[in-house]
Design a protein around this nucleic acid. Structure first.
Lengths: 138, 138
DNA sequence: CGGAAAACTGAAAATCTTTCGCATCTTAAA
DNA sequence: TTTAAGATGCGAAAGATTTTCAGTTTTCCG
């Protein structure tokens, strides 16, 4: 199980870390804020502080287990790193998040960065809009 | 002059607003944080509080005069809305910012949003990297 | 030009998210 | 087990931004 992942990250296998990783894996949502994780823990009667949640998520991030995203509106969200990079479509009404990847866009980004002499480290593309479920008839 | 723009935005023409708009127009940089604006004001011996700077910038944003961007790393930056939308290339070393627009990327975004039933409201594409000036020889 | 209502302002206090300090508790390994 | 290194929880602190509030300034109109 996931205890291996924690160990491989060079971290001790502790209750908070196991629980938090488990929540990231099994809660329905792929994108969770630190608060979300904290609330899940509380609802499972785990006595884990918010500071620890942040600490652990940050460690998981350094270890490459999760990615942190800064969308508009306060909190960051964390998602399990499922390998491939991807961008996001975010509904500004209900918060729904859709992931996508587009080879053409990736390619253009590389070309543009090169034109300006930049060496790309990472990039973030977020498209904000209204999802079909939230659209009101005009 | 720009007093007109303030008036047209439905705002009273006050000293803080005029000064702040002027700074946005005439300071060398296109991207300024609230702090940057505040420091400029101080250096012009204007007695305007940081709270007012935030208030005014937010009002200008609502009025469509400026755009607010949340790049990584704390503060937001504001830029005069020169009409066209554009994306950013940010140097994570020195903070240098390059603007760009790419028709192909814009087009793909529209197509992807449509595929998922989203109505785009806005989007933000930020590519983080190291600019030529900051690149150390490998 | 005067006067008042409405809008605006600075300073300090309040929020909100995230991190830190530190005494205490766990884990991993001998 | 024993123990040192590493983790944890709590409350306090930090940094960015917003709100509160009482005093000012603008605008509008007679």
């Amino acid at each position: 199980m996931s205890n291996q992942q924690i160990k491989q990250a060079g971290l001790k296998v502790t209750v908070p870390r196991v629980k938090i990783l488990s929540i990231l894996e099994h809660s329905g949502k792929r994108h969770l804020s630190a608060e979300d994780v904290y609330r899940e823990l509380l609802s499972h009667d785990e006595d884990i502080g918010l500071a620890t949640v942040y600490r652990v998520l940050t460690q998981f991030e350094s270890a490459g287990l999760v990615c942190r995203r800064h969308f508009e509106g306060g909190q960051s969200v964390f998602e399990l790193d499922g390998g491939g990079h991807h961008d996001h479509l975010v509904c500004i009404q209900c918060g729904k998040i859709v992931e996508f990847v587009d080879a053409m866009i990736e390619e253009r980004q590389r070309a543009i960065a090169a034109e300006h002499g930049f060496r790309i480290k990472e990039h973030s593309l977020v498209v904000y809009g209204i999802c079909s479920g939230c659209q009101t008839p005009d």
